[in-house]
């Protein structure tokens, strides 16, 4: 159900509509609609973003920097990076494998498989965390066995990684499947007829065609992996300096009324979001450009 996030081409289509009498609205309507839409945009999207940075710097740069280099903050940053570094490549491998199987072959139950891949998108993050507690927690299926072997998954780093993998599970597959579907398999067949083996076909023919979609999926997956809150919150146990990711660290600081520090860490995450959006816009631009060249 990531329908809303897929790659879409920009291009200047406005002129197409504004230059034709039949599709042009009166100026008063145009500007009223723009005004209303932008007010809505500003109230709900722009102002919260600005608020993060304003609140973060409210007590000055020194407090801001101090909040970021404080040991608990540093370990939260590290843990967030670890979770993303594990989750993203795993879901990348999965996404490519799933898209290859689904788009290059016909088999029974394909539609069901696509729906199941989408499943994590529709599961509440809190439930996502809960399921791992039920499997690996002290009272869970493997709880006693894990305790017997002194392995900790819940309230420890592995649980956080697992929850992160779950919530970011469909991102890359969801991006690649429609893209590879649209490209068909003629080029791959041509490569095979010309004597290329499977790996050569993927590397020289498929990959160059899907690279922008792949990157797009990876950045969205990464943003969600670093920012996940609900699922991670359930399995983390909130042990400062050990099992706190950045979003959880923000929550603790906020609940302790250390607003400036909370917003300082939050501002790092907001910066990450802005970088994500910038890269995403750039990738979209590249993809459109590549499309213009090839069509």
């Amino acid at each position: 159900m990531a329908g809303a996030t897929s790659l879409h081409a920009g291009g200047d289509v406005a002129a197409r509509f504004e230059n034709r009498a039949a599709t042009r609205e009166p100026a008063w309507f145009k500007w009223m609609l723009i005004a209303v839409s932008l007010t809505f945009f500003a109230l709900f999207l722009l102002m919260p973003l600005i608020a993060v940075f304003v609140e973060a710097l409210r007590k000055g740069w020194d407090t801001y920097l101090a909040a970021l280099i404080e040991p608990d903050a540093v370990s939260a940053i590290k843990l967030t990076l670890i979770a993303a570094v594990i989750a993203v490549p795993l879901n990348l491998t999965f996404g490519v494998a799933a898209a290859w199987a689904i788009t290059k072959f016909n088999f029974r139950g394909k539609h069901l498989l696509i729906t199941l891949i989408d499943l994590p998108f529709s599961v509440s993050p809190v439930v996502a965390g809960l399921i791992y507690v039920l499997v690996f927690g002290a009272q869970g299926w493997f709880g006693p066995w894990l305790q017997g072997h002194d392995v900790k998954i819940i309230f420890a780093v592995p649980g956080i990684v697992l929850a992160t993998i779950f919530v970011t599970f469909p991102f890359i597959a969801r991006e690649l499947i429609p893209l590879m579907q649209a490209q068909g398999k003629e080029e791959e067949e041509a490569a095979v007829v010309l004597g290329a083996n499977g790996w050569q076909t993927f590397w020289y023919v498929t990959l160059p065609n899907i690279k922008w979609g792949l990157m797009y999926g990876v950045i969205l997956c990464n943003a969600r992996a670093m920012g996940e809150f609900g699922a991670v919150s359930v399995v983390s146990g909130h042990i400062r300096g050990l099992t706190n990711t950045m979003p959880l660290h923000v929550e603790i600081l906020y609940n302790e009324y250390q607003f400036a520090a909370a917003f300082a860490v939050a501002s790092l995450l907001a910066l990450l979001a802005l970088v994500t959006l910038a890269v995403k816009t750039w990738v979209e631009y590249q993809a459109t450009k590549a499309k213009d060249v090839t069509e």
Binding site: E189, A190, V193, G195, A196, N197, V205, P208, N209, A290
Partner: peptide, 20 residues
């Protein structure tokens, strides 16, 4: 396998590799 048949195949829509 098609790879070992040594046939030349020209596809209807050519299937040229567009990035090459």
């Amino acid at each position: 396998h098609v790879r070992e048949r040594h046939v030349g195949f020209v596809f209807q829509h050519y299937a040229l590799f567009r990035h090459m």
